[in-house]
Design a protein around this nucleic acid. Structure first.
Lengths: 193, 193
DNA sequence: TTCTTGATTGACTAATCACTCTACAAATGT
DNA sequence: ACATTTGTAGAGTGATTAGTCAATCAAGAA
């Protein structure tokens, strides 16, 4: 219905404005008034959609996490082989991060901030469970070295963060970017196999 | 002199209190009044040592960076071989991070925050110049794969961050920790050689 | 039409914050 | 001894903030 789409629109505007401002000025460094202003709504409207500022921060985190997960699922599910799945997870994570730099920066910022503790351990676990299972499978089949899956996962994520920072630090053409991602994946595999 | 040592003491107290509170509640989430309280000094005293809150944040960053650098230099300089130097850099970075978790967490938080832009590029470059030169040397000698040193450096740092998070996520004995660090180094070398 | 419900507004408030200011104490220099 | 600088305190201030509230507005239901 029309009214609902209006609702979502303003909510989306608020989330989008919050994302930009949070990355630029930090969570506490961004007043709700500025968020409302940039979203083009009144002060009070923000609190109609989000009871508190904290709730807005958490909602933004969940929203971004979900968008990235959806993107990854779409691109990984079609892959049939283990190697194909890992390549898809890695390259598409990088592609998404580079295509959504602000969102990815927000994730980094959030995950190293005290806000992270507001996310329940179950929810955190749920987000990585699938990946852990896939890694376990790869270990069982001798595709990866026999290491704890959690160790492998954190290393892969560290790898992705590092590569992201490298690709953001200077200007690359799309071709160069893809080449670096490709090489980064090969190096990662050299480490894990 | 006595007065100077008193000065340093209060300044250190303030930096130490700020560190704990920043990691627990974030930069803007920590009022200067609470910092002064925890440091055991009056409100105004904080502003005698640091003109503004921002200056305190930056001073804390510089202080921690310098402590880590000093620690690394001490342990890396004695090494004579390339392999020895890299192993020393890696393992001692991990050791320092685990022995100074809060400090290391602060570095992570700071480096993913908008505050990072307050640090001049020259200063940032100065901090990594030595490492970049060492990597370049290793590439020239065929010790590492022929990749841009910046790429190798960000990957190593991503590796360290990942390993740090893994070792913080659950309880390990010292022996287990050292084993993981050792293995982590071997894997890193497998990737870079 | 009339009623109801939810969206929207922006002025308002109580609390909090970074920072100042004045006064005083302690150390240092001469 | 005296003067000067430096450290310390904590009440005070003006600005800012998250969140509230009473008042409209829009739109569908009866």
């Amino acid at each position: 219905m029309i009214s609902q789409s209006r609702n979502s629109e303003k909510e989306k505007e608020l989330l989008s404005a919050a994302l930009e401002l949070f990355v630029a000025y930090g969570f506490h460094g961004t007043p709700t008034s500025k968020i409302a202003l940039q979203a083009g709504v009144a002060n009070g409207t923000l609190f109609h959609y989000f009871k508190t500022k904290d709730e807005l921060v958490l909602a933004l985190y969940v929203d971004i996490k979900q968008k990235m997960s959806t993107y990854l699922e779409e691109h990984v599910l079609p892959e049939t082989t283990l190697a194909g799945k890992f390549r898809a997870i890695f390259t598409n994570s990088m592609q998404w991060a580079l295509a959504n730099k602000t969102s990815f920066q927000f994730l980094q910022q959030f995950q190293t901030s005290p806000y992270l503790s507001r996310i329940s351990p179950e929810e955190t676990l749920g987000q990585v469970k699938d990946h852990l299972m896939l890694i376990q499978l790869a270990v069982d089949e001798g595709f990866f070295k026999p290491k704890p899956p959690e160790l492998i996962l954190t290393m892969v994520m560290g790898h992705i963060f590092g590569l992201f920072q490298y690709l953001c630090s200077s200007d690359f053409t799309n071709d160069e970017q893809n080449k670096v991602i490709e090489q980064g994946f090969e190096m990662l595999m050299a480490m894990l196999k």
